[in-house]
Amino acid sequence: MEFMKMRLVYAFILMMGALCLYFSMEPFEEPPHILKKGQGKFLQLPDIDCKQKPPFLVLLVTSSHKQLAARMAIRKTWGRETEVQGQRVKTLFLLGASDSTDEMNAIAQEGKQYRDIIQKDFKDVYFNLTLKTMMGMEWVHHFCPQAAFVMKTDSDMFVNIGYLTELLLKKNKTSRFFTGHISDVASKVYSVSESVPFLKLEDVFVGLCLAKLKIRPEELHTKQTFFPGGLRFSVCRFRKIVTCHYVSPKDLLTYWQILENSQEQNCSAV
């Protein structure tokens, strides 16, 4: 039964890839600036030495120039965590380039202050989300292959770093492992990406890369822990999830404060 369930998940990813390939062939009003793997130069690199202090978990957060409030909320909540259950954790933000000189100067100053931005010189638009994701994979491949796990997420997400770390430690697998809605297969995905047709939808593109590598998605937990459609907040519920989508910066700060102030609350009866 479990094997059949995994086959269905895998088939779903391939099916979605086929459907989105069709839609990606529709003409764009403004064609995206497409780069091949490894092209373009890094404009900013984060301050992290993976050789000396290999991180257990690297979180790559896709962001944009106008999402400063979201980045600041993450830096004050789950993104501020540097060690969880004795494991090193690092959160980094992925950005492209802007046509606005003011925005480019602002993000350069932000990068100097926080040292947590990875930036390349492709145009930062929605259609280049795949480039942004592959930039993160490229950075891992070249600068941080020592990371045990890599997770790609978005700037409007709640991420329960503590519970995620707990589940990853229980999983006790750091090779050819992919889960969620990514994991230390980052270098392999980056390496194979050039031979996979480019798609503007980054999750589908990565899914096709994984299919080419014959890496099947695995459950992180028997219960649902990833909520891409959002979830109503409660302390006990959010203690036992890994991610929740569509969380505003204001709500993220509120949720985090409530969770921190309710560490003693008993959820065993829930």
Rank of each mutant, 00 (worst) to 15 (best):
A106S: 14
A108M: 11
H181G: 10
F198K: 07
S187G: 09
S248N: 04
H142N: 15
Q109D: 13
K51F: 01
D203A: 03
D154I: 08
A18Q: 08
Y246I: 05
N105Q: 11
P249M: 08
M25I: 11
G180D: 03
W256K: 01
I118C: 03
Q224I: 10
A70P: 01
H65D: 04
K51N: 04
L210S: 06
P145L: 07
G79H: 01
T243I: 10
T174P: 06
N266K: 06
V204A: 11
C244H: 06
P197C: 10
I215P: 07
P54M: 07
A106K: 14
D154C: 05
D251S: 12
A148P: 00
M135Q: 10
S24W: 04
F12Y: 14
I182C: 08
C209I: 04
Q113M: 11
K76C: 00
G38M: 03
S24C: 09
D99T: 13
S24P: 05
T179C: 05
A97E: 02
D49W: 02
L60M: 14
D156C: 05
I13T: 05
K36R: 15
M151S: 05
I74W: 01
Y126S: 12
H245E: 07
Q87M: 14
D102P: 02
R7M: 15
F227M: 04
L252I: 07
D49Y: 03
M134F: 10
F226H: 06
T130M: 06
R237S: 12
A73W: 01
I258A: 10
Q67T: 04
D102I: 06
